[in-house]
Design a protein around this nucleic acid. Sequence first.
DNA 1: CGAACGATTGATTTTCATCAAGACCGGTGG
DNA 2: CCACCGGTCTTGATGAAAATCAATCGTTCG
Lengths: 244, 244
Amino acid sequence: MNNVRTIHSPLPAPLFRDCPDCCFTGWSQRARLSANEFRSFDDQIEHRRPKKKHEFVHRAGTALVSLYVINSGFLKASINDNNGHEQITGFFMPGDLVGMEAIATGKHQCNTTALEDSSLCGIVFASLEQLSREIPSLQRDFNQTLGAEINRDHGMMVLLGAMRAEERVAMFLLNLSRRFAIRGRSGTCFHLPMTRQEIGNYLGLTLETISRALSHLGDLGLIVTRGKDIEIRDAARLQEVVQH
Amino acid sequence: MNNVRTIHSPLPAPLFRDCPDCCFTGWSQRARLSANEFRSFDDQIEHRRPKKKHEFVHRAGTALVSLYVINSGFLKASINDNNGHEQITGFFMPGDLVGMEAIATGKHQCNTTALEDSSLCGIVFASLEQLSREIPSLQRDFNQTLGAEINRDHGMMVLLGAMRAEERVAMFLLNLSRRFAIRGRSGTCFHLPMTRQEIGNYLGLTLETISRALSHLGDLGLIVTRGKDIEIRDAARLQEVVQH
DNA sequence: CGAACGATTGATTTTCATCAAGACCGGTGG
DNA sequence: CCACCGGTCTTGATGAAAATCAATCGTTCG
């Protein structure tokens, strides 16, 4: 009964060779792993774990087991503050590492869910710690990834603390654009996997304000929107909007 | 010429025994270092580096050399976005580690300055990486410290994205209170080392709004302010303000 | 002591949230 | 395939929160 088996204990993880677009390959390349190191690394990775739209990757309060790299798809992470309000702390796309908010306490602080059907690769955190002691270049890469998350968060603090609504939206679009471009996808034409409500939550604004800002940027000829599809027409002037 | 020597190459660092309140002792204790490990660790630490009020600990753009733990005093870190605006990303007190924003790129992203005369202990980052490979408990502690910074930043995102002015100020005060208390100082009666302007900048508000919020919390009998001296009269109700 | 900076308080304006109505879109089932 | 339904998005009208402008007072430090 294969179904039962997939539920109670996952199938043996496929190897890198079965997971051609695995985003941990980026890690192994940057860290310049030797063949042996590569094998040790690969042994610890659980490849191609699928997540359906709306499915949880992890829930706030649960113990940290694995960190995940996104292979394909899109995730969001959000914190529930002690009254009911939800605050989205990040949107994640292929290549991004999720779960780092659990490292301090050993328990996840965020609910992380799939915004669309996604594929992830996981590595048990204890294994990553062990490996990064043995492989200095991996240690450096991991530390840099944690540091990059800190910098990303500081950027959000600047956005939330100092920018007006339209500037925030312009920055949000440019940020997505840059990240898509880095990943070899179009940075000028892309699909937003999240709702206006979710964008607003992330940017500290209401969904109406997001809608109005997008309309206005459209009126200015800087972007074209059709629902969740965005085309950036003038990135330079959009950047000027950001800088007021 | 001692002066020349202190400029061009620092005096031999004092040891832990010369730096009785050194906040790296907390690290060595949590990591349960053996005597040998302790010696290796201490060897890498530059103890008791003094910083005068307004002096820089590091400047944005400079290369990361050392991370610093605050021994006494108070620091602020701020980012200058590409137009002139400054955004304060954190206030740091004894026991806090500063410099982590430089790990991702190897260059500092923040200006970090002393709000009052302060004493720091530094560890060369490369040495910390090396030691944390050799001493797993130190590696864990360091990773947890990075993770804690991420969680702190997420907390700020919630504050900036979802809270109204008075809630932000109440949360700010309670946060300071808690941190003072943990350090064995009074959590009810303390001195704010930063200006209203700086509080406002940090909380995404203007100095006038900070002043008004403090006055109003005073009218409600939750706090007493006299200039930069704060007394928290009713922490429980202050917490209720935070949760709206 | 006085000058410069910091804090408070009030009046007014701006920005964005809220409330409300209708349009659009995507998925589902007939 | 089409019609319908719920969720999403847009747009407008109004209101509330905080920013801005301005005047005064307090305090700190040369």
